[in-house]
Design a protein around this nucleic acid. Structure first.
Lengths: 189, 189
DNA sequence: GTCTATACAGGGATAGAC
DNA sequence: GTCTATCCCTGTATAGAC
């Protein structure tokens, strides 16, 4: 979902994603998706049982791709702070390079479809950072707060900054550096 | 929008809000809204030009109500840390008491309608916390980072914790206290 | 202000030929 | 696998009586 779509199925998913990101779920009609992907409407139903299934498949694929990309690049670092920084930068890089994917992910997560999806795709990413947190707590570097709280000071600020980037806010390297410092400061106190 | 609806107009807005919060925007049809509010479908159009206008009006009203409630309670505190804590607690109290309003706000903000709304309603709340930040920076208590960055370590973690609350996560007083400490730690380093 | 009835368009999904 | 044609239903909005 992050690379250029090759198959018809991928093209349909990618197109749906772009439409949702650009004009919202209401604009993502089967007619619109098929037309913009360059296929007939009937073709869509040869690849997906329903429109909702198409959107859910696109979301799952997106999350899987992001997870793979991020966990492939991170992982070498040893101390918790370096791992936090690496994960932040990886996610930033991936989403900044594909704002359409980022916006789609946000919108999907707030839609009623996320109920049907279950949220399993997102859980893996949470597990990733939980590992960093728990190692840091064992080493006595990270404060003894519930992991959920610590996670709330990692992803949400990152996402908020990406959202501002969508609106045109340019972030310098120094500002990103500072944000990572702030996340770490919240973890350590 | 946070108190019990009195007029027909308010009843329609409140019902629309509850439906969106419960089953998403797709479920908020004019027929469904009118029926659940106890009116005929045609009545809706005596109070609003369109369905979208109804939803936008509900969002604006909600944001205005939350802003009034929060700024009425906060304001007495003097030092930045106490003001941060007071604002956090106020917002927590308001939204925790009305999860439907909270979810509607989140969903609306990620919908295409937010484009038409403009985001002015949300800006006032941002302005509120910016005041705290700038005073803190002048006093040399808060780090010299861009206010946008500091805001990203206030609202987003708070919202993330409220979202978990919606999912059934119970937060103790001590945990909320700790979260406020973490927000402050991120601001001071 | 509210209701009933209705017009009208648009959207999801299927059938069947190629 | 893909396209064309089509069905049916739902959703928005209006007209007009009470």
């Amino acid at each position: 979902m992050l690379t250029r779509p090759a198959t018809t199925k991928e093209k349909l998913m990618r197109t749906a994603m772009d439409i949702v990101a650009g004009d919202g779920f209401a604009a993502a009609t089967t007619a619109h998706i098929a037309e913009r992907a360059g296929f007939a409407e009937g073709t869509l139903y040869r690849h997906f049982k329903s429109k909702d299934e198409l959107l859910i498949a696109a979301y799952r694929q997106l999350k899987a791709d992001v997870f793979d990309r991020v966990s492939a690049e991170t992982g070498n670092a040893t101390d918790p702070k370096a791992r936090l920084a690496a994960l932040w930068r990886d996610m930033w890089t991936v989403y900044a390079a594909d704002m359409s994917a980022f916006i789609f992910g946000q919108r999907f997560a707030e839609s009623a479809l996320s109920k049907a999806e279950g949220g399993a795709a997102h859980e893996r990413m949470i597990g990733h950072i939980r590992g960093i947190i728990e190692d840091g707590q064992k080493a006595g570097l990270v404060r003894q707060a519930p992991p959920e709280t610590l996670v709330a000071f990692f992803f949400p600020p990152l996402v908020a900054m990406l959202k501002q980037r969508v609106q045109g806010r340019a972030w310098s390297e120094a500002e990103i550096e500072a944000a990572i410092e702030m996340a770490w400061a919240s973890w350590t106190g």
